[in-house]
Amino acid sequence: MYVWIWHHLPGPLALRLVETLVLLLAVVALLMFVVFPIVEPHLPLNQVTVPKQHK
C-alpha cells in the first residue's frame, strides 16, 4: 500500500517528501479530531461516574 502511494505521488523527490508529510498530517488530524472523539466514549477506559439510584 505504502509503495503504491509512493509510486503515485507526482513530482520530483523533494516534492514527494513534502506530499508524504502533508498526507501523514492529514491522517493524524483525521484520527485526532474526528475518529478518536467518536470512538473514545465507547471504550471502557475512562468512566468516572457511578449510576444514579432511583430514590
Partner: peptide, 9 residues
C-alpha cells in the same frame, strides 16, 4: 464497583 450508585444517596 462501577454499578454501585450508593455514593450518591
Amino acid at each position: 464497583s462501577s454499578d454501585d450508585g450508593g455514593p450518591l444517596y
